[in-house]
Nucleic acid binder design. Structure first.
Lengths: 137, 137
DNA sequence: TTTTCATTATGACCTCCATGATCATATTTT
DNA sequence: AAAATATGATCATGGAGGTCATAATGAAAA
């Protein structure tokens, strides 16, 4: 039960990107060096963010990345979903086959896990990228 | 951001133990075979639960484990703390040195992580082992 | 009283996968 | 040509998950 370093990197990188001009692409190398993130690694993360619809890319010289929408429209849930593929802390599925446990409906833990997932989800939806920007800068 | 299998195992095992007579030790082998948990692995987990004050042990023949207190006095937070050593999802510390980030007080993410940890903590405290026992059995 | 046996106690060890990170190379556009 | 993204292969490592061997303990059988 720990946040992945991927999420951590993405939050910092997206914060940096949010400070830039929305209309001009900003390169990964700049973000990476500024925020001290391995830039080859950040490339991979931004690929996921692009597929997840958080950022869009412009190729070639003068290219780079831009946010697809205003920071207050990007929740932490959106970001974690894009980068990790899920936000639920537990699913009543087999760890290997991914199949739902056949006793889930009669299991006394199911409600607990569902409730837990919901709490986390609600929390993550309540924070947006906007919340991480210093006002007045 | 995923619950450890250790937590999962412990919840099931403690539920099983909670169904037994509080005054008589119940052996790990019985719990393990009943709940289909590798018993050698469960031994290690119960060591942590004992050190964490969730269960107490009786050695020798007829020995085994017992809960140290009533199920409604054992929260999921207690269990996860005992078995994983923490319940916080993120700490603003270096992953290797464990030292607190020197910019934590001026960092715009600190509040978010603190808030996140608090939410999870509150949630975990609100559930006890009692909640997982079928009434009327 | 002695022995046996079922249990916990402890630490070393093993295996494997996910995480974290790099490299090489292709593609695009100024 | 240069500077950027795009993509996939590959590498390294730690931690998660699990096993093994052996000692210590204490109740019950002999």
């Amino acid at each position: 039960m720990k946040i992945s370093i991927d999420t951590d990197y993405c939050l910092r990188a997206l914060q940096e990107l949010a400070y830039q001009d929305r209309e001009n692409p900003y390169s990964i190398v700049k973000i990476a060096t500024k925020r001290k993130i391995p830039h080859k690694y950040l490339e991979k993360l931004f690929r996921r963010l692009r597929i997840g619809g958080i950022v869009k890319s412009v190729k070639g010289r003068k290219g780079g990345y831009m946010l697809t929408r205003d920071p207050d429209k990007i929740t932490t849930k959106d970001i974690i979903m894009a980068v990790d593929g899920r936000t639920n802390i537990h699913s009543c599925t087999d760890r290997k086959t991914e199949k739902l446990c056949e006793f889930a409906d009669q299991c006394s833990f199911t409600d607990f896990w569902t409730d837990f997932n919901t709490h986390i989800n609600d929390f993550l939806v309540s924070y947006t990228l906007e919340d991480f920007l210093e006002k007045g800068k």
